[in-house]
């Protein structure tokens, strides 16, 4: 397809699978975290906030190593997952998705949190008096209003997950067809002599993918605004 080799196609598939699944299972977590940070007060909020933002400020390799310590076969949580459920995350695409999710998570939470902080919480009271319960008020009022923020966060998250390298290679390794995403394939190509044309094609694929995500997100954001202006 499009003159792509099997290896390149595989890398593309792995990249999309890892990034999209990360996006899907991280969305509720990001919404929940942003909600906690924007709308609630609780003990340890500062610590919680710092924890979420750690991946922004430490090298991804550190995150990968910490994941290995926690979720590896002999890791603190990993050993338990393995014994009870037979789940092993190391060297799997799910492991790669977890690595990408953790690293990109703060980029997802921040725009949603800012959007939530800009919403007047008294609109919820109005929704209550009109017969919506708290859950309905969230889905009918708050969520649609913060949708542009959610889309921005989703784009930042997706792009960052797509480009994830350090944490992924440390935690999930570089296995073609399983955990070898585009950046990892590109890295491999740059390490083998005479692979420059392959590397260039991988670069082009990465660019197209990132630009595609950007354009899609812009279009969705504009569509929400147009609907709103009615």
């Amino acid at each position: 397809m499009l003159g792509l080799t099997g290896l390149e196609l595989e890398a593309l598939q792995v990249s999309l699978k890892v990034s999209l699944w990360s996006l899907i299972w991280t969305l509720p977590l990001a919404l929940g975290s942003a909600w906690l940070l924007a709308r609630t007060e609780f003990r340890g909020k500062a610590v919680f906030n710092a924890l979420i933002h750690v991946p922004l400020v430490v090298p991804p390799v550190v995150i990968g190593y910490l994941l290995l310590v926690l979720l590896g076969r002999q890791g603190l949580i990993g050993i338990w997952l393995n014994d009870w459920f037979g789940i092993g995350l190391v060297f799997t695409w799910q492991g790669a998705a977890i690595a990408a999710s953790v690293v990109a998570f703060p980029l997802f939470v921040r725009p949603i949190r800012q959007a939530l902080e800009a919403v007047d919480p008294r609109l919820d009271e109005a929704a209550l008096t009109l017969g919506a319960n708290k859950r309905q008020a969230f889905f009918a009022v708050t969520l649609p209003i913060v949708m542009p923020g959610v889309l921005t966060g989703a784009l930042l998250f997706f792009s960052r997950a797509l480009g994830e390298f350090g944490a992924t290679i440390t935690f999930a390794a570089n296995i073609p067809g399983e955990t070898q995403t585009l950046p990892l394939a590109l890295y491999t190509a740059t390490q083998s002599p005479g692979s420059d044309p392959i590397a260039m094609r991988l670069v082009m694929m990465s660019l197209v993918l990132a630009l595609g995500a950007l354009i899609l997100s812009e279009w969705l954001t504009r569509r929400t605004y147009t609907q709103r202006r009615g």
């Binding site: 008294r122 009271e125 109005a126 009109l130 017969g131 919506a132 202006r229």
Partner: peptide, 19 residues
């Protein structure tokens, strides 16, 4: 406290979704 993401009709009909 009108809902900014809905137009006038959407605001008017909001309560009908739940009542």
């Amino acid at each position: 406290r009108l809902f900014p993401h809905l137009n006038v009709q959407g605001n008017l009909m909001f309560g009908r979704r739940f009542n």
